[in-house]
């Protein structure tokens, strides 16, 4: 596993850039992770998505169903892709500090 500097601290990431320890996530880490996803600045809508994902993950230890994410944040799936070009599972979840999805996701 590689160590990189994100948000001013050294964090372990996997080959796909997902952080390994979700407890070390904070907003500065998110901002730096977003840059690896081609999002230079996190706007209000980005944060709405990221915060929802983060809260859901802390409660259920998994990412929410995509439709639930859209409904809760009042965003259409297309808008999610506009915000995070690599999509909700690989893009938004990475920025929110969730682990890389496994299985057929």
């Amino acid at each position: 596993m590689e160590m990189v500097e994100l948000g001013g601290k050294m964090l372990e990431i996997d080959e796909d850039g997902f952080i390994q320890d979700p407890d070390l996530w904070d907003e500065a880490v998110a901002a730096d992770l977003a840059k690896t996803e081609g999002v230079d600045e996190l706007g209000e809508l980005h944060w709405k998505l990221v915060n929802y994902l983060r809260d859901y993950y802390l409660e259920f230890n998994m990412a929410p169903m995509i439709r639930k994410l859209c409904k809760a944040t009042d965003l259409k799936l297309k808008e999610v892709y506009d915000l995070f070009p690599s999509g909700p599972a690989k893009g938004a979840c990475k920025v929110a500090g969730l682990p890389k999805p496994t299985g057929c996701v």
């Binding site: 259920f60 230890n61 998994m62 169903m65 439709r67 639930k68 682990p99 999805p101 496994t102 299985g103 057929c104 996701v105």
Partner: peptide, 29 residues
């Protein structure tokens, strides 16, 4: 490999690591 490991040896026993509480939340939704 990681998916099968989770399915056979992990806590959730499924390939996408969906925990029981998460499944129940999805079904309620």
């Amino acid at each position: 490999q990681v998916s099968v490991q989770e399915q056979l040896e992990g806590e959730t026993h499924n390939t996408s690591k969906v925990p029981r509480a998460g499944l129940i939340d999805v079904l309620e939704f």
